[in-house]
Computed example of a mutant assay.
Amino acid sequence: MPRASQFLRTVQHFWQKTCQVVLDGFYPRLCRHCEVLLPHEAPRQGVGAWFCGTCQQDMEATTAPYCSVCGEMFSGAMTEAFRCQNCTGHRVAYDFAVAGYQISEPVREVIHRYKYGRDLSLRAALADLLLPALEDPRLASEDLRRWLLVPVPLHFSRQIWRGFNQSWELCRQISQRTGIPAAQSLSRQTRTVAQAHLQRRKRLANLRGAFALSHRFSWRPPQELKGRNILLVDDVLTTGATAHECAKVLKQQAGVEKVVVITAARG
């Protein structure tokens, strides 16, 4: 029996490798940034499955030291938790934010193609960029399967134009891989002007009142959210204004205990 099992595993491994070679012949794997052909031995999972070695050298994974609030990285030796200059003196509704990667040209390009090029196939690549955020030491002692993944919502008109909510698609990917439940607990009430070129103060003013609990929760406090810990999911965090407004609604209106923002990139 042991020899038979070993033989079956060998055959299974052989056919798996054969199928991969055949599929790579029909559908070559390309770097999702520079589109160079990936070698056959490139990983089938993780960041190496989506980016070539050269592009990976231009990408910076989030590593300590970084701001204990917004996750912005700093060079040099830090022996204790600290707030960056942008977070000092500001109160935010979320507990802290952490990204899998810092923004770089390969990461920025993939996010842009995902959101504005409507390339839904990139959701798995963005999920692989985000997943390292769950390894933050502040989450190490948590049973994250008892938490809840909640996406930053899109206004319905923008979602119709785009065809999907990029944050919800990331939630679905992460939930499938980790077993953490996910729910669309927030809705966007107003279509705000584009945030990209606004400063933090103007972003906050632009977003004030833009978010609410989703309609199925509107008539009573949602019991499934009260006292829960939330992982608020988005593709990129810049000033944190959007995350702040979402966390404020979750805590004030739903009685959420804790909100941690996780993103693929820190802008």
Results as ranks from 00 to 15, higher is better:
R138W: 02
W50M: 08
Q20C: 11
L126N: 01
R83A: 03
V260I: 10
C34E: 15
V36I: 14
Y66R: 05
K17C: 05
G25L: 12
V22K: 01
M78F: 15
T63P: 00
A196D: 07
L131Q: 12
L232C: 06
Q173A: 13
R191P: 00
T192E: 13
P153Q: 05
H197C: 05
C19P: 00
I262D: 09
N165T: 11
A99S: 14
R208C: 09
R138N: 02
R158H: 08
S121M: 09
Q57K: 12
L23G: 01
R9Y: 04
L250F: 11
I174H: 07
R201Y: 07
L122G: 02
R172S: 05
T62E: 01
C87P: 06
R91L: 11
R9H: 11
A127H: 05
D136R: 06
C67L: 04
F14Q: 10
V150M: 11
H215T: 12
V92M: 09
R113N: 14
P151F: 05
F26L: 15
L154V: 04
F164C: 07
W168Q: 08
C67Q: 06
E224D: 12
C246G: 08
C34R: 14
G71N: 08
G71L: 07
L198T: 13
Q16P: 00
F96Y: 13
S5L: 11
E105F: 03
R201G: 02
F7R: 04
H155Q: 06
C87N: 10
R123V: 03
S104N: 00
A247P: 02
Q252I: 00
V249S: 09
V110W: 02
